[in-house]
Nucleic acid binder design. Sequence first.
RNA 1: GCCGGGAUGGGGUAGUGGUUAUCCUGUGGGACUGUGGAUCCCUCAAGCUGGGUUCGAAUCCCGGUCCCGGCCCCA
Length: 448
Amino acid sequence: MSIQRPRGTRDFLPEDAWRRNRIRTAMQGTAERWGYQEIATPTFENLDLFTLKSGEAVLEEIYSFKDKGGRDMALRPELTAPVMRMYVNELQNAPRPLRLCYFGNCFRYERPQKGRFREFWQLGVELIGARKPDSEAEVIALADRMIRAAGVKGDIHVGYLGLVRSILAKIGSEHRTAIMRMIDKKERDRLQEYLQEIGADHLGIMDIINAKGRAALDQAEAISHDLERVKVQSPAPAASSAFSTSEGRASARINREIEAESGLNEFREMIDLLDAYGVDATIDFEIVRGLEYYSGTVFEIYASGLGAQRQICGGGSYELASLFGGAATNSTGFGLGFDRIMEIASIEETRPAPVVLVSTPDARAAAIKLAEKLRDLVLAAKIPVVLDVMGRSEKAQLKAANVMGANYAVIVGPEELASGRLNLRDMKKGVQEGLSLEEIAERLMFGS
RNA sequence: GCCGGGAUGGGGUAGUGGUUAUCCUGUGGGACUGUGGAUCCCUCAAGCUGGGUUCGAAUCCCGGUCCCGGCCCCA
């Protein structure tokens, strides 16, 4: 019995690995052309980093362990927290804004299913320390372009937490988490009942989440305007005093209130900027992305063809730097589910076929040197040049070349070495021709 | 954590209680000592795992592992 690979992990065979690399390069190249610089963080971090950001509840799904020094460590379950930790540790004095991108494996102890694995890859960007509407529009537009670079079409839904939060500020704080949760879960009926029970059904929450697109924005503004005349229900603590910086280790999920100003004008500004980028996005206040460190615009992108796990991207503006001990800094970013992208990515390219250098035993040493030279000559086209290492007959070498998918073989024996003209064999046409190594390289790269 | 369907050479498969475990593909070699793909021959190589039932289990039953799909969750 051989050893099996761990549950929820995958092996990537040469074809898979090549495809993954192509698509990763296409998407990351897009980010780099927008000025985002790649960074990398450790595969494991102190466990606290993640419980601080996401709460103790994540412990159930985190790969955590004690190292030999007794420290609590965790395989990273996501990349935003490590990136922000890195920012706080060593980039707080870097010129603003910071445009960072990353690609890395993450780990979650979950039940595998379509588009969900225990080791998975996230590709994302963070834009740190810039003005919100501009940052948000740029980041959403970039997400759109990166997905397109992979040949994927997604539906972008953009929401805004400020409005819902400002409505919630008028409701007793004990109801807020439950309401946010029901919105996120799309439990319309229960939400409606709940709002009626607590006498908050006149505040417009249902109207907001039911409206979609431009109409939603107009509706939001009307509701926001009405809201100014609504009295705050008790008990309603002042929004900003609930979070005490002296308790810096509190989870972002608990006891942490982001200012509840509606800020709808900034959201509208951001939407107008998105138009300038030519991004087709649906305004959707139902997107709330549960966690409290999100501070304004949030967005998600969905694609079809993925079964139950349709979301391929999620992001928004947030403030995490202060949670990790830095100065409060606005950031906007997103993470893309790379494995889900791979499921639906369309690329037409095929990898370059190898060239096989076939030699007789007495020409082997010369063939090695010729192969080296030929690799340099065809470097730009990334054409692999391979030699036989099986001690095979010339016939068997050609057979192997055929199996490998080679379009050309270069045949080297005593006669070719004596004349300096190597035999370039076209494997498709079955014809061959005596040429110099340089001529062969030309032929391989540019055809005949 | 829950529900359903699965697991036979490297890949794809047949076999519903007794077979030297089927076939295709693949691997390496050969027929063919300087020229590939055809054909033929040889070779390599398999019932997830642990129990149970039985004279006898790949086959029936139970536990586990892993895979596929869904629920929960999704930072």
